[in-house]
Amino acid sequence: MEFLLSILTGLLFAAGVYLLLHRDFAKLVMGIVIIGNATAIFIFVAGRIVRKSAPFLDEQGVAPDTFADPVPQALILTALVIGFGIQAFALLLFKKVYDIPDIEEVDDLKK
């Protein structure tokens, strides 16, 4: 699964950067969102992947034989929520920018 996910992460990054270089606001923010997601998966893959066994202990508090690494999961979980905050902030900022007359695309910010 790491092999597949590595390729997928690369594709996500490529798509994200491509959108980031766009002149359109909406696409730009989409790029930010995709890069955020891609980063999460990047960290996840770097922490190695164990299929279908979540890091939970059984009733007696004993760990199963194999289970996914909880550390990157904990890292990503908070990162995702923070990423959400940042994305929302960016979106609102862009909305505010649009309230200014004469601004229709990213390039107009130069004015």
Partner: peptide, 15 residues
């Protein structure tokens, strides 16, 4: 070109 380059780099790094 730029974005595919970055994507390829990320994939290779993960490999």
């Amino acid at each position: 070109f730029i974005s595919l380059g970055i994507g390829l780099l990320v994939t290779l790094i993960l490999f």
